[in-house]
C-alpha cells in the first residue's frame, strides 16, 4: 500500500508523514523550495514541484501526474490544500473526504473519522475515497530518516495568474507547539486587557492565544494565534481559557488539551462543560489574584 502526500509546506508534510507512516509507504509532493527540508525523512520519493506552485489547478495537475502507483492522496487541510485536493479528486475521478483526523486503510477504501455539524458531532465512515484532506497538527513532524529520491515535476496550466506573494507577519511563537497556553475571548472586553493576560502568561511560561473574535474580527491578536475550527488546533498540557464562551468552533481547536481551566463571568457558558476546572467570575478580578498566588 502506498500513499502520496501533497503539502505546500515541509513542516506539515512531515507531520502528516508521522501520522501515516505506520500504515503505508509514503511519497511526498511539495514545492521545490520546501522539498530539501523533507527529502531525508523516510519518504521513498519526493516530487519537487516547480513552476506555477501557487495556482490550485496547476498544482493539482502536477500532483495527479505522479499519482499513478499510489492508493491514496493525502493533503493537509490548509486553505490552499483545501482547494488542491478537490480538483485532484476530480482529475482522477476519485471520491474525496475532508478534514479527517483518523485513517485506517481497508479493502477498497478506508475507515475515517471526522467532525460534523461544525464539530458538534463525530462521524465514523467507511469510504471508497482516495483523496483526503487531513486536519493539521495531528502528529509531531517525522524525524530524520532515509534519504528520498528527488524528482522534479512542473506545475503548469493554471487558470489564474499569480500576481504577488506577500508574507504574513511571522508569529513570535508557534502556538501549536506551546506547552501551556493562555487564551482569551471576547469576554476580555478591551484590547488593553491583554496586558493582564500577558502577565499571567509570563508567570506560567505560556503562549498567548485567542478565539476567532479576538484574532480575526477585532485583531487584538495576530491571526496565527487563533485557536479553533478556522484557526490552529492546539494540544498543550494546560489550556487556560479567559472570557471564552466555548462555542463549538473554538472547542474543536483545543479539545485535545490535557488540562483545561476556564474563567468566565457567565455561569452557563458552554466552556464550563469543556473544562476540568472553572471559576465563575470576572477575569479582571480573578486573573490578578491568580498571578499573585503563582508568583
Amino acid at each position: 500500500m502506498k500513499g502520496l502526500i501533497y503539502s505546500e509546506s515541509a513542516q506539515r508534510a512531515k507531520e502528516l508523514m508521522s501520522f501515516l507512516k505506520d500504515q503505508m509507504e509514503l511519497d511526498l509532493a511539495l514545492p521545490e523550495a520546501e522539498a530539501v527540508q523533507a527529502s531525508s525523512n523516510g519518504a521513498s520519493r519526493v516530487y519537487a514541484i516547480y513552476g506555477d506552485v501557487y495556482e490550485p489547478f496547476a498544482v493539482a495537475s502536477a500532483v495527479v501526474s505522479v499519482f499513478d502507483g499510489h492508493d491514496y492522496l493525502f493533503v493537509p487541510a490548509t486553505n490552499f490544500g483545501r482547494q488542491v485536493a478537490p480538483i485532484a479528486a476530480q482529475l482522477i475521478k476519485a471520491e474525496m473526504e475532508s478534514e479527517i483526523f483518523y485513517f485506517r486503510p481497508e479493502q477498497d477504501g478506508a475507515i475515517v473519522r471526522r467532525y460534523f455539524y461544525g464539530g458538534k458531532t463525530l462521524l465514523e465512515e467507511k469510504t471508497g475515497a482516495k483523496v483526503f484532506t487531513v486536519m493539521t497538527g495531528l502528529a509531531q513532524p517525522a524525524q530524520q530518516g532515509s534519504p528520498s529520491e528527488v524528482i522534479r515535476v512542473e506545475a503548469k496550466g493554471g487558470l489564474s495568474r499569480v500576481l504577488q506573494i506577500s508574507g504574513k507577519q511571522k508569529a513570535s511563537a508557534d502556538i501549536t507547539k506551546a506547552d501551556i497556553i493562555v487564551s482569551v475571548g471576547r469576554g476580555l472586553g478591551k484590547k488593553e486587557g491583554l496586558e493582564l493576560v500577558r502577565q499571567l502568561a509570563s508567570v506560567l511560561g505560556a503562549e498567548v492565544a485567542g478565539s476567532r473574535p479576538v484574532c480575526s474580527d477585532l485583531h487584538w491578536l495576530d491571526e496565527d494565534r487563533q485557536v479553533g475550527l478556522t484557526g490552529k488546533r492546539v494540544r498543550p498540557r494546560v489550556y487556560v481559557a479567559l472570557g471564552i464562551s466555548g462555542q463549538i468552533q473554538h472547542i474543536v481547536g483545543m479539545r485535545d488539551s490535557k488540562v483545561v481551566i476556564a474563567v468566565n463571568k457567565d455561569k452557563t457558558a458552554p466552556i464550563f462543560q469543556e473544562c476540568d476546572y472553572g471559576i465563575v467570575g470576572d477575569i479582571y478580578e480573578v486573573v490578578p489574584k491568580l498571578i499573585e498566588k503563582l508568583k
Binding site: 463525530l122 465512515e125 464550563f272 469543556e274 471559576i279 465563575v280
Partner: peptide, 30 residues
C-alpha cells in the same frame, strides 16, 4: 460509496469542577 458507521456526540472527559466562589476557585486552580 460512503457508509456511515457511527454518528455520535463526542464525549468530553473533562472533570468539570466549577467554583462559584472566586477566592476558593483561585486557591484551587493555583
Amino acid at each position: 460509496t460512503l457508509q456511515v458507521l457511527g454518528h455520535t456526540f463526542p464525549m468530553s472527559q473533562r472533570k468539570r469542577i466549577i467554583f462559584e466562589d472566586t477566592n476558593k476557585g483561585v486557591e484551587e486552580v493555583a
